[in-house]
Design a protein around this nucleic acid. Structure first.
Length: 865
RNA sequence: GGGGAGAUGGCGGAACUGGCAGACGCAUCGGACUUAAAAUCCGAAGCCCUCACGGGCGUCCGGGUUCGAUCCCCGGUCUCCCCA
């Protein structure tokens, strides 16, 4: 039976197959046959997913649909569009799953990828599938290793002992995010910080460039400032304080406020500080050692949290203020060990100025230490005189060489003095630390490094890449904390091809971030076997024009990728300084959840609706509707498969965008979905007589002759208003307003039955197509077009149809709406005022007009007495 | 704790540059078509007073600037996100 009804499933299957078989979204590279260099390029990229076992829920595709809409419109505007997708396939969950089930992570990952691919295709996303990639594929990670070797050759990769989280129970090193309050996230076992030999990347060498070049990109200010704070550049000075007694090395501190040196009444060193044991007196040794042990169990966050109590122990040692006479009793400064000082920041020691630093102030109060005012706050600002600590800029006092100087001058003077006496110098430090780059795991990129018998380390030659992961079936961590790869001895024991001598392979692997640092570059030339990507491809595609993803990657992923990009820039293989020109963060998709009277969230499947109220199925307790993240435990996760099955993929796409601006968080409401389906039904019926057999309605078969008038003219105006709003929606990605505009136009079409012209119908289909591509393709083809709507031209706005002859003038009296009247579009102020006076004559009765404010095109406001 | 974003009908949201608050959709109610239902179409609807005409109130709360404030300024409350 052939039906003329709207059948999304049939249409969507048909066009998805057609797109696939014609490679409709395949993008040519320079040098490919058919490549048109005259078209502008546009590279629009999604942050690729980690293919988890759960598959996609309706939140994931939100950004993908947004970027797809942009990609489709850019194609219609005549751009060469690069719009690829891949998988960030290495990572911990697959390995944990392997430990539990024995299933190889490669197998799990391949299955998950298959699910993701199926789901992504089902959504009708216009990716160039020929460019699909997986970071766990040796043909990809060969080049991840290749880039690592460039870093290694440049001295940007090194091994060193750093404190890392170690869990004795699990016999493994854990990442920061796997440790919560000093206990393992899995199993809740105690963890401690332990120094272990790790690979580090010298990202700090790029700190200034990573900071400066933020000015070149169009990113949300919030993300830029997060990166700036993460890098945390601060200018100040390093000062060497001689130690009283037998210790020869001075205690070097970093401070951003050298001008407050005369206010330093005590010093603090980190528990990890190398001089600590030398500083510690015999009497204090036991207390200090105990303190150091306790500190090892805390995270940096716990240690530095401003809300937490500051703690410390006197070491028994004293330092001397280098700018004071050593015989002056005030020059003698007691030294404490305190864990709010971090070994990894600055020099691991501070001069504490309790008068002008909140943390030092708190510490001094707790341990009853001297507080001296050395900066007088500006007039009106409370300071020490009022019993509060002042940390801003002011005027130096009680500081002989700089008394009376404003803070900036005082700082410069002190730095000069320190330098003169050889006890200090200006110094810039960063919060950013080198990147801990190794993991004692199996499912990651092996390091292309060989350890020789004599202790030397060499990198694997380019021609021997990739270093592939050996097949293994046991991924549990070893007793001694070494990586699982250490047990693949056939693989570990190898020969250095240069010297022919025996060598051991590095058994750590790279972290999950590695593969995602450069995937946007591989997409430009994904099958290149001789290079990571060709120079021609990189030259043409440049950087990513629009990068869409979640704000959770604001710091780490984006900073790491920028770092690698800059290294590649120095290496001469990329020509752009920054990888992502414009960044856009989509909002989070939430769902409704229900709270009982105790505030507990009740799983969605234990709830029912009774007369507009939400109640618990058993017991009938009334519940409050709130908004929460989609989560397995609340059973409020919505799967796209079900939605698409029931309503079709075009409806799904439309609803995802219609919910609200792409950047906002918003709740998924299954009740709203049918509204979008109804809109598509309406569109279909405007084009197709569902009871007939014709492809399209008769009035759409050929162009209407002559000038537009009546309903056709009204529709032309309506269409152009809609088009204007659609075009505008691409500025801020608030596609909800674009869809609302299309709906308004369709409502107008419904009011003017039969008046829709072929030209209007065609342009409408074009504008609809980025949002609901399948139904648009079907209607486009029914209108008799051979080529797909994918490459049809985007309609041009015709401004002459935006102006009406008259408009509704608002008449206000003292700012309150009192009347409306039709006004000619070019009436002058006097005419408008006269018109308004007449329209509001009744309300103006008995009042004196003091003033009339006339805003042509909008309103007249009478101020009366 | 720090940083950021936000708060508009029963719900999601709209509102150009300070100028008609509530577009569009959902849910609701009424009507048409139907033997009936579904689907579809038409209509109503922020809240309060009023039979109605009409009026009052209204964009988290309290102030301010302005002829006029959802929008700008000051103070506060709450929510969400990120650092984690």
């Amino acid at each position: 039976m052939t039906s003329n009804a709207y059948d999304p499933r049939a249409i969507e299957t048909k066009w998805q197959e057609r797109w696939e078989s014609t490679r409709a979204f395949h993008t040519q590279n320079p040098g490919d046959p058919g490549f048109d260099a005259s078209k502008p390029k546009y590279y629009v990229l999604d942050m690729f997913p980690y293919p988890s076992g759960a598959g996609l829920h309706v939140g994931h595709p939100m950004g993908y649909i947004g970027s797809d809409i942009v990609a489709r419109k850019k194609r219609m505007e005549g751009c060469n569009v690069l719009h690829p997708m891949g998988y960030d396939a290495f990572g911990l969950p697959a390995e944990q799953y392997a430990i539990q089930t024995g299933k190889h992570p490669g197998e799990t990952t391949a299955e998950n990828i298959a699910t993701y691919r199926r789901q992504l295709k089902m959504i009708g996303l216009s990716y160039d599938w020929d460019r699909e990639l997986s970071t766990a594929d040796p043909s990809y990670y060969k080049w991840t290793q290749w880039i690592f070797t460039r870093l290694y050759d440049r001295g940007l990769a090194y091994q060193t002992e750093v404190p890392v989280w170690w869990c004795e129970e699990l016999k493994t090193v854990l990442a920061n995010e796997e440790v919560i309050n000093g206990r393992s996230e899995r199993g809740d076992h105690p963890c401690e910080r332990r120094p272990l030999k790790q690979w580090m990347l010298r990202i700090t060498a790029y700190a200034d460039r990573l900071l400066e070049d933020l000015d070149e990109v169009q990113w949300p200010e919030s993300v830029k400032s997060m990166q700036r704070e993460w890098i945390g550049r601060s200018e100040g000075a390093e000062i060497a304080f001689p130690i009283q007694g037998p210790v020869v090395d001075p205690l070097v501190v970093f401070t951003t406020r050298p001008d407050t040196i005369f206010g330093a009444t005590f010093m603090c060193v980190a528990p990890e500080h190398p001089l600590l044991s030398k500083l510690t007196s015999v009497e204090q040794r036991a207390a200090v050692e105990e303190y150091v042990k306790a500190a090892a169990l805390k995270s940096d966050l716990e240690r530095t949290d401003l809300a937490k109590d500051k703690s410390g122990v006197f070491t028994g040692g004293y330092a001397l203020n280098p700018l004071m006479d050593s015989s002056d009793p005030k020059a003698r400064i007691p030294i404490f060990v305190a864990d709010y000082v971090l070994g990894s920041y600055g020099t691991g020691a501070i001069m504490a100025v309790p008068g002008h630093d909140e943390r030092d102030f708190e510490f001094a109060q707790k341990y009853d230490l001297d507080v001296v005012e050395v900066v007088k706050p500006p007039q009106g600002t409370p300071g020490l005189a009022d019993g509060v600590c002042f940390s801003g800029k002011g005027t130096a006092v009680h500081s002989p060489p700089i008394d009376g100087l404003p803070t900036d001058d005082a700082t410069a003077r002190i730095v000069a003095l320190l330098q003169e006496r050889g006890v200090g110098a200006a110094k810039t430090t960063y919060r950013l630390r080198d990147w801990l780059f190794s993991r004692q795991r199996y499912w990651g990129e092996p390091f292309p490094i060989l350890h020789l018998e004599n202790g030397d380390r060499v990198r694997v030659r380019d021609e021997d890449l990739p270093v592939e992961l050996p097949p293994m079936d046991d991924f549990t961590p070893s007793e001694d904390g070494s990586a699982p790869l250490n047990r693949a001895q056939d693989w570990v024991q190898t020969t250095d091809p240069v010297t022919g001598k025996p060598a051991l392979r590095e058994t750590d692997t790279m972290p999950g971030w590695a593969g995602s640092c450069w995937y946007y570059l591989r997409f430009m030339d994904p099958h290149n076997a001789g290079a990571a990507f060709s120079q021609d491809a990189e030259q043409y595609w440049g950087n990513v024009d629009l990068y869409i993803g979640g704000v959770e990657h604001a710091v780490l992923h984006l900073l790491y990728a920028r770092f690698w990009h800059k290294v590649l820039y120095d290496e001469g293989v990329v020509k752009t300084k920054e990888p992502f020109q414009k960044l856009f963060n989509q909002g989070m998709l939430t769902a409704f959840a229900y709270k009982d009277s105790t505030g507990r969230l009740v799983p969605a499947n234990e709830i029912e609706e009774r007369g507009g109220k939400y109640v618990k199925r058993d017991g009938g307790e009334e519940l409050e509707q709130v908004i929460a993240k989609m989560s397995k435990s609340l059973r409020n996760v919505v799967n796209p498969d079900q939605v698409i099955e029931e309503y079709g993929c075009d409806t799904f796409r439309l609803y995802e965008m219609f919910m609200g601006p792409l950047s906002d968080s918003k709740p998924w409401n299954p009740r709203d979905v049918p509204g979008c389906r109804r809109f598509l039904d309406k569109v279909w019926r405007a084009f197709v007589d569902v009871d007939g057999t014709e492809a399209v309605r008769p009035n759409l078969r050929q162009d209407a002759a002559g000038e537009l008038q009546g309903d056709a003219l009204a529709l032309e105006r309506s269409f152009n208003r809609a088009l204007q709003r659609v075009d505008a929606s691409f500025e801020h990605f608030n596609f909800n307003t674009a869809i609302a505009a299309l709906m308004t136009f369709m409502n107008d079409v419904g009011k003017c039955a039969g008046a829709l012209t072929r030209s209007q119908a065609e342009r409408f289909v074009c504008v609809l197509s980025p949002f609901a591509p399948h139904v648009a393709e079907e209607l486009w083809s029914r209108l008799g077009h051979e080529g797909g709507v994918t490459h049809a031209a985007w309609p041009k706005l015709r401004e002459e149809f935006l102006v009406e002859d008259t408009y509704e003038l608002i008449v206000q009296i003292k700012g309150k709406l009192r009347a409306r009247v039709q006004a000619p579009k070019d009436a002058d102020n006097a005419a408008l005022e006269a018109l308004a006076k007449e329209a509001a004559a009744a309300q103006l009765e008995g009042q004196t007009i003091v003033k009339a404010i006339v805003v042509p095109g909008r309103l007249v406001n009478f101020v009366t007495r």
